[in-house]
Simulated scan of single mutants.
Amino acid sequence: MDGAILSHDDLRDAPDLDSLTARAAERGLTPGWIDRDVPILYREPHTAFLPAHWRYEEAKAAMDGAARLIGTDLAERRNLIMRNPAPGNDIATARTLICAYQTILPGEEAASHRHAPHALRVILDSDGAWSIVDGEKHPMLTGDIVLTPGGSWHGLGHEGTGQAYWFDGLDVPLVHLLEPMYVEGHPDGMEPVKRVVTDSPYRFPMERTLRELDAAAPDPEGHFGRRIRYEAPQMPTLAIAMHRMDGGFRGRPYRCTANSVFVVMQGSGRSVIDGTAIDWTYGDTFVSPSWKTAVHGAAEDAVLFQMSDEELMRWARYWRFEAVD
Protein backbone atom coordinates (compact mmCIF):
# COMPACT_ATOMS: atom_id res chain seq x y z
CA MET A 1 0.00 0.00 0.00
CA ASP A 2 1.25 3.52 -0.79
CA GLY A 3 3.02 4.99 2.28
CA ALA A 4 1.48 8.40 1.50
CA ILE A 5 -1.95 7.10 2.50
CA LEU A 6 -0.93 6.10 6.03
CA SER A 7 2.30 7.43 7.49
CA HIS A 8 4.67 5.26 9.47
CA ASP A 9 4.06 7.60 12.42
CA ASP A 10 0.39 6.60 12.42
CA LEU A 11 1.58 3.09 13.18
CA ARG A 12 4.23 4.06 15.72
CA ASP A 13 1.88 6.42 17.55
CA ALA A 14 -1.30 4.33 17.47
CA PRO A 15 -3.20 5.16 20.70
CA ASP A 16 -4.22 1.55 21.44
CA LEU A 17 -3.93 -2.01 20.15
CA ASP A 18 -7.26 -1.90 18.32
CA SER A 19 -6.12 1.12 16.35
CA LEU A 20 -2.75 -0.47 15.62
CA THR A 21 -4.44 -3.69 14.48
CA ALA A 22 -6.77 -1.81 12.14
CA ARG A 23 -3.99 0.33 10.66
CA ALA A 24 -1.67 -2.67 10.24
CA ALA A 25 -4.47 -4.60 8.51
CA GLU A 26 -4.58 -1.95 5.78
CA ARG A 27 -0.97 -2.86 5.04
CA GLY A 28 -1.66 -6.59 4.93
CA LEU A 29 -0.31 -7.20 8.44
CA THR A 30 -2.08 -9.08 11.24
CA PRO A 31 -0.99 -9.66 14.86
CA GLY A 32 0.07 -13.12 15.91
CA TRP A 33 -1.16 -12.54 19.46
CA ILE A 34 -4.89 -12.17 18.85
CA ASP A 35 -7.44 -14.97 19.36
CA ARG A 36 -8.62 -16.61 16.15
CA ASP A 37 -11.42 -18.95 15.18
CA VAL A 38 -8.74 -21.22 13.72
CA PRO A 39 -5.58 -21.13 15.87
CA ILE A 40 -2.17 -20.73 14.26
CA LEU A 41 -0.78 -23.52 16.46
CA TYR A 42 -2.48 -26.45 18.22
CA ARG A 43 -1.31 -28.14 21.40
CA GLU A 44 -1.55 -31.50 19.63
CA PRO A 45 -2.35 -32.73 16.10
CA HIS A 46 -5.80 -31.69 14.96
CA THR A 47 -8.04 -32.37 11.96
CA ALA A 48 -11.55 -31.41 10.93
CA PHE A 49 -11.83 -34.61 8.90
CA LEU A 50 -14.09 -37.33 10.28
CA PRO A 51 -14.10 -41.12 10.36
CA ALA A 52 -16.27 -42.28 7.47
CA HIS A 53 -17.39 -45.52 5.82
CA TRP A 54 -18.44 -46.24 2.23
CA ARG A 55 -20.18 -49.53 1.45
CA TYR A 56 -19.03 -51.25 -1.72
CA GLU A 57 -22.43 -52.73 -2.51
CA GLU A 58 -24.02 -49.27 -2.46
CA ALA A 59 -21.23 -47.78 -4.57
CA LYS A 60 -21.41 -50.74 -6.97
CA ALA A 61 -25.13 -50.15 -7.52
CA ALA A 62 -24.44 -46.48 -8.23
CA MET A 63 -21.64 -47.42 -10.66
CA ASP A 64 -24.01 -49.79 -12.45
CA GLY A 65 -26.38 -46.87 -12.87
CA ALA A 66 -23.56 -44.66 -14.12
CA ALA A 67 -22.47 -47.34 -16.61
CA ARG A 68 -25.98 -47.29 -18.06
CA LEU A 69 -26.14 -43.49 -18.28
CA ILE A 70 -22.66 -42.28 -19.26
CA GLY A 71 -19.78 -43.78 -21.24
CA THR A 72 -16.03 -43.37 -21.00
CA ASP A 73 -16.20 -41.26 -24.15
CA LEU A 74 -17.86 -38.54 -22.04
CA ALA A 75 -16.77 -39.30 -18.48
CA GLU A 76 -13.28 -40.58 -19.45
CA ARG A 77 -12.97 -41.92 -15.88
CA ARG A 78 -16.37 -43.19 -14.72
CA ASN A 79 -15.88 -42.84 -10.98
CA LEU A 80 -17.69 -41.88 -7.79
CA ILE A 81 -15.63 -39.89 -5.30
CA MET A 82 -15.76 -40.71 -1.59
CA ARG A 83 -16.32 -37.31 0.01
CA ASN A 84 -15.53 -36.96 3.69
CA PRO A 85 -18.41 -35.38 5.66
CA ALA A 86 -16.10 -32.78 7.22
CA PRO A 87 -17.75 -29.32 7.17
CA GLY A 88 -16.95 -27.36 4.02
CA ASN A 89 -15.23 -30.28 2.29
CA ASP A 90 -15.92 -30.83 -1.41
CA ILE A 91 -13.91 -33.77 -2.74
CA ALA A 92 -11.26 -34.90 -0.23
CA THR A 93 -11.54 -38.28 1.50
CA ALA A 94 -8.86 -37.25 4.01
CA ARG A 95 -6.76 -34.11 4.29
CA THR A 96 -4.18 -35.23 1.72
CA LEU A 97 -6.02 -38.06 -0.05
CA ILE A 98 -8.91 -38.51 -2.46
CA CYS A 99 -10.49 -41.89 -3.15
CA ALA A 100 -13.14 -43.14 -5.56
CA TYR A 101 -14.80 -46.24 -6.89
CA GLN A 102 -14.50 -46.69 -10.66
CA THR A 103 -15.99 -49.04 -13.24
CA ILE A 104 -15.48 -49.95 -16.89
CA LEU A 105 -17.55 -52.11 -19.23
CA PRO A 106 -16.26 -54.86 -21.54
CA GLY A 107 -14.99 -53.35 -24.77
CA GLU A 108 -14.50 -49.88 -23.32
CA GLU A 109 -11.26 -47.93 -23.15
CA ALA A 110 -10.36 -44.87 -21.08
CA ALA A 111 -7.83 -42.70 -22.93
CA SER A 112 -4.32 -42.21 -21.65
CA HIS A 113 -3.42 -39.10 -19.72
CA ARG A 114 -0.86 -38.00 -17.16
CA HIS A 115 -1.07 -35.70 -14.17
CA ALA A 116 0.86 -34.45 -11.19
CA PRO A 117 -0.85 -36.57 -8.48
CA HIS A 118 0.40 -40.04 -7.64
CA ALA A 119 -2.33 -42.65 -8.00
CA LEU A 120 -3.08 -46.30 -7.39
CA ARG A 121 -5.88 -48.78 -8.01
CA VAL A 122 -7.11 -51.65 -5.86
CA ILE A 123 -8.92 -54.06 -8.18
CA LEU A 124 -12.10 -55.38 -6.56
CA ASP A 125 -13.80 -57.30 -9.40
CA SER A 126 -12.08 -57.81 -12.73
CA ASP A 127 -11.28 -60.50 -15.27
CA GLY A 128 -9.98 -59.03 -18.51
CA ALA A 129 -9.39 -55.39 -17.60
CA TRP A 130 -5.94 -53.97 -18.30
CA SER A 131 -3.81 -50.92 -17.65
CA ILE A 132 -1.06 -49.34 -19.72
CA VAL A 133 1.55 -47.26 -17.88
CA ASP A 134 4.32 -45.53 -19.86
CA GLY A 135 3.78 -47.91 -22.77
CA GLU A 136 3.74 -51.11 -20.69
CA LYS A 137 0.42 -53.00 -20.77
CA HIS A 138 -0.43 -55.39 -17.95
CA PRO A 139 -3.57 -57.08 -16.57
CA MET A 140 -5.72 -55.76 -13.74
CA LEU A 141 -7.13 -58.81 -11.97
CA THR A 142 -9.18 -59.05 -8.79
CA GLY A 143 -6.98 -58.29 -5.79
CA ASP A 144 -4.21 -56.57 -7.76
CA ILE A 145 -2.66 -53.29 -6.63
CA VAL A 146 -1.81 -51.14 -9.66
CA LEU A 147 0.37 -48.01 -9.48
CA THR A 148 0.33 -44.94 -11.71
CA PRO A 149 3.08 -42.58 -10.51
CA GLY A 150 2.66 -38.87 -11.04
CA GLY A 151 3.82 -37.79 -14.50
CA SER A 152 3.37 -41.27 -16.02
CA TRP A 153 1.13 -41.78 -19.02
CA HIS A 154 -1.64 -44.23 -18.16
CA GLY A 155 -4.78 -45.55 -19.78
CA LEU A 156 -7.01 -48.56 -19.32
CA GLY A 157 -9.44 -50.85 -21.07
CA HIS A 158 -11.39 -54.08 -20.78
CA GLU A 159 -11.11 -57.17 -22.99
CA GLY A 160 -13.16 -59.50 -20.76
CA THR A 161 -16.86 -60.24 -20.47
CA GLY A 162 -17.98 -58.92 -17.06
CA GLN A 163 -18.09 -55.36 -15.75
CA ALA A 164 -14.93 -54.43 -13.81
CA TYR A 165 -14.77 -52.40 -10.59
CA TRP A 166 -11.93 -50.98 -8.52
CA PHE A 167 -10.86 -48.46 -5.89
CA ASP A 168 -8.83 -45.38 -6.86
CA GLY A 169 -6.55 -43.53 -4.43
CA LEU A 170 -4.62 -40.33 -5.19
CA ASP A 171 -2.87 -37.50 -3.35
CA VAL A 172 -4.94 -34.85 -5.16
CA PRO A 173 -5.71 -32.68 -2.08
CA LEU A 174 -1.99 -32.50 -1.29
CA VAL A 175 -1.23 -31.44 -4.86
CA HIS A 176 -3.96 -28.78 -4.66
CA LEU A 177 -2.36 -27.46 -1.47
CA LEU A 178 1.16 -27.31 -2.93
CA GLU A 179 -0.21 -26.13 -6.33
CA PRO A 180 1.84 -28.06 -8.91
CA MET A 181 -1.37 -29.56 -10.35
CA TYR A 182 -1.64 -30.31 -14.07
CA VAL A 183 -3.33 -32.90 -16.29
CA GLU A 184 -2.54 -33.62 -19.95
CA GLY A 185 -4.24 -35.91 -22.44
CA HIS A 186 -2.11 -38.18 -24.62
CA PRO A 187 -1.83 -36.85 -28.21
CA ASP A 188 -2.77 -40.31 -29.58
CA GLY A 189 -5.73 -40.79 -27.27
CA MET A 190 -4.51 -44.18 -26.05
CA GLU A 191 -0.74 -44.33 -25.78
CA PRO A 192 0.95 -46.94 -28.00
CA VAL A 193 1.75 -50.29 -26.40
CA LYS A 194 5.50 -50.89 -26.30
CA ARG A 195 5.26 -54.29 -24.63
CA VAL A 196 2.77 -56.57 -22.87
CA VAL A 197 3.80 -58.01 -19.50
CA THR A 198 2.38 -59.71 -16.44
CA ASP A 199 5.28 -58.82 -14.12
CA SER A 200 5.58 -55.08 -13.69
CA PRO A 201 6.90 -52.68 -11.05
CA TYR A 202 3.48 -51.04 -11.36
CA ARG A 203 1.49 -54.19 -10.47
CA PHE A 204 1.34 -56.20 -7.25
CA PRO A 205 -0.77 -59.34 -7.93
CA MET A 206 -2.94 -60.78 -5.17
CA GLU A 207 -1.33 -64.21 -5.21
CA ARG A 208 2.04 -62.63 -4.41
CA THR A 209 0.48 -60.51 -1.68
CA LEU A 210 -1.03 -63.58 -0.02
CA ARG A 211 2.29 -65.47 -0.16
CA GLU A 212 4.08 -62.56 1.48
CA LEU A 213 1.39 -62.26 4.16
CA ASP A 214 1.80 -65.98 4.89
CA ALA A 215 5.51 -65.41 5.47
CA ALA A 216 5.13 -62.17 7.47
CA ALA A 217 5.59 -62.10 11.23
CA PRO A 218 2.71 -60.87 13.42
CA ASP A 219 2.85 -57.23 14.51
CA PRO A 220 4.89 -57.41 17.74
CA GLU A 221 3.01 -54.42 19.16
CA GLY A 222 -0.36 -56.07 18.59
CA HIS A 223 -2.02 -53.21 16.72
CA PHE A 224 -2.44 -55.28 13.56
CA GLY A 225 -2.06 -58.92 12.60
CA ARG A 226 0.48 -59.70 9.89
CA ARG A 227 1.56 -56.78 7.74
CA ILE A 228 3.55 -56.23 4.56
CA ARG A 229 4.54 -52.94 2.96
CA TYR A 230 4.77 -52.32 -0.76
CA GLU A 231 7.83 -50.45 -1.95
CA ALA A 232 6.87 -47.63 -4.32
CA PRO A 233 9.77 -45.13 -4.37
CA GLN A 234 8.35 -43.51 -7.51
CA MET A 235 5.34 -42.39 -5.39
CA PRO A 236 7.10 -40.86 -2.34
CA THR A 237 4.06 -39.18 -0.76
CA LEU A 238 2.18 -42.46 -0.26
CA ALA A 239 2.67 -45.47 1.98
CA ILE A 240 1.00 -48.71 0.87
CA ALA A 241 0.47 -51.77 3.07
CA MET A 242 -1.63 -54.91 3.43
CA HIS A 243 -2.79 -56.40 6.73
CA ARG A 244 -4.06 -59.89 7.56
CA MET A 245 -6.05 -60.51 10.74
CA ASP A 246 -7.24 -63.94 11.87
CA GLY A 247 -10.89 -64.35 12.83
CA GLY A 248 -11.40 -63.19 16.42
CA PHE A 249 -8.37 -60.87 16.36
CA ARG A 250 -8.72 -57.57 18.21
CA GLY A 251 -5.84 -55.14 17.96
CA ARG A 252 -4.51 -52.68 20.48
CA PRO A 253 -5.76 -49.09 20.06
CA TYR A 254 -3.33 -46.60 18.56
CA ARG A 255 -3.16 -43.16 17.03
CA CYS A 256 -0.74 -41.62 14.55
CA THR A 257 -0.27 -38.46 12.54
CA ALA A 258 -0.84 -40.17 9.17
CA ASN A 259 -4.16 -40.05 7.36
CA SER A 260 -5.13 -43.61 6.38
CA VAL A 261 -7.70 -45.15 4.07
CA PHE A 262 -8.51 -48.88 4.32
CA VAL A 263 -10.10 -51.14 1.70
CA VAL A 264 -11.45 -54.58 2.65
CA MET A 265 -9.92 -57.27 0.45
CA GLN A 266 -11.20 -60.33 2.33
CA GLY A 267 -13.44 -61.12 5.27
CA SER A 268 -15.34 -58.88 7.64
CA GLY A 269 -14.82 -57.14 10.94
CA ARG A 270 -15.19 -53.96 12.94
CA SER A 271 -12.95 -50.93 13.35
CA VAL A 272 -13.59 -48.18 15.86
CA ILE A 273 -12.22 -44.79 14.80
CA ASP A 274 -12.49 -41.94 17.30
CA GLY A 275 -15.42 -43.72 18.93
CA THR A 276 -17.24 -44.40 15.64
CA ALA A 277 -17.88 -48.12 15.07
CA ILE A 278 -17.48 -49.23 11.44
CA ASP A 279 -18.67 -52.72 10.50
CA TRP A 280 -16.96 -53.58 7.27
CA THR A 281 -17.08 -56.32 4.65
CA TYR A 282 -15.61 -57.02 1.19
CA GLY A 283 -14.90 -53.97 -0.94
CA ASP A 284 -15.86 -51.43 1.73
CA THR A 285 -13.68 -48.37 2.27
CA PHE A 286 -13.19 -46.46 5.50
CA VAL A 287 -10.99 -43.57 6.55
CA SER A 288 -9.00 -43.04 9.75
CA PRO A 289 -8.01 -39.36 9.93
CA SER A 290 -4.84 -38.07 11.53
CA TRP A 291 -4.46 -38.51 15.31
CA LYS A 292 -7.83 -40.24 15.75
CA THR A 293 -7.66 -43.28 18.02
CA ALA A 294 -8.20 -46.45 15.98
CA VAL A 295 -8.63 -50.14 16.80
CA HIS A 296 -9.26 -52.96 14.33
CA GLY A 297 -10.83 -56.38 14.82
CA ALA A 298 -11.79 -59.28 12.55
CA ALA A 299 -15.02 -61.26 12.80
CA GLU A 300 -13.51 -63.79 10.34
CA ASP A 301 -10.17 -64.10 8.60
CA ALA A 302 -9.68 -60.73 6.92
CA VAL A 303 -7.27 -58.81 4.70
CA LEU A 304 -7.18 -55.00 4.68
CA PHE A 305 -5.40 -52.79 2.18
CA GLN A 306 -4.09 -49.50 3.59
CA MET A 307 -2.90 -46.35 1.84
CA SER A 308 -1.71 -43.36 3.83
CA ASP A 309 0.48 -40.28 3.80
CA GLU A 310 2.89 -41.89 6.28
CA GLU A 311 5.84 -41.60 3.88
CA LEU A 312 5.23 -37.88 3.59
CA MET A 313 4.88 -37.51 7.37
CA ARG A 314 8.14 -39.37 7.97
CA TRP A 315 10.02 -37.37 5.34
CA ALA A 316 8.79 -34.08 6.83
CA ARG A 317 9.52 -35.32 10.38
CA TYR A 318 5.85 -34.96 11.35
CA TRP A 319 5.44 -38.68 12.05
CA ARG A 320 4.15 -39.72 15.48
CA PHE A 321 2.70 -43.06 16.54
CA GLU A 322 1.59 -44.11 19.99
CA ALA A 323 -0.40 -46.87 21.65
CA VAL A 324 -3.59 -45.77 23.39
CA ASP A 325 -4.20 -48.35 26.13
Rank of each mutant, 00 (worst) to 15 (best):
285 T>D: 05
188 D>Y: 06
51 P>K: 04
112 S>W: 01
171 D>F: 02
45 P>E: 08
206 M>V: 05
85 P>D: 09
26 E>V: 11
60 K>F: 02
140 M>N: 11
47 T>F: 07
321 F>I: 13
169 G>P: 02
106 P>W: 05
46 H>V: 08
34 I>L: 02
156 L>N: 15
250 R>T: 14
273 I>H: 02
204 F>D: 00
264 V>N: 00
298 A>Y: 07
233 P>I: 01
39 P>A: 05
71 G>S: 15
155 G>I: 02
44 E>A: 15
253 P>A: 08
267 G>I: 05
80 L>N: 10
186 H>K: 00
109 E>W: 02
298 A>S: 05
260 S>L: 14
78 R>P: 09
198 T>C: 06
324 V>D: 11
41 L>H: 12
86 A>S: 12
191 E>H: 07
73 D>Y: 00
134 D>E: 02
186 H>L: 00
302 A>C: 08
193 V>D: 06
222 G>D: 10
141 L>K: 10
147 L>E: 02
298 A>I: 08
288 S>L: 03
2 D>P: 11
93 T>Q: 05
294 A>L: 08
48 A>R: 14
271 S>K: 03
258 A>S: 13
298 A>E: 06
46 H>S: 10
309 D>Y: 05
226 R>P: 04
272 V>F: 04
298 A>K: 03
320 R>L: 13
287 V>S: 11
84 N>S: 10
191 E>C: 06
246 D>S: 13
270 R>P: 02
49 F>K: 08
137 K>C: 11
179 E>D: 15
66 A>I: 10
34 I>Y: 01
124 L>A: 11
279 D>T: 09
109 E>L: 13
51 P>R: 03
298 A>P: 08
282 Y>Q: 05
148 T>E: 00
252 R>L: 15
154 H>V: 03
305 F>T: 01
288 S>Q: 10
325 D>I: 08
187 P>M: 01
192 P>L: 12
22 A>F: 03
107 G>V: 06
291 W>L: 11
81 I>D: 05
2 D>L: 12
255 R>P: 08
195 R>V: 11
64 D>A: 14
211 R>L: 06
134 D>G: 01
157 G>N: 07
250 R>E: 13
268 S>R: 14
253 P>S: 08
128 G>L: 15
148 T>Y: 01
202 Y>H: 04
30 T>S: 15
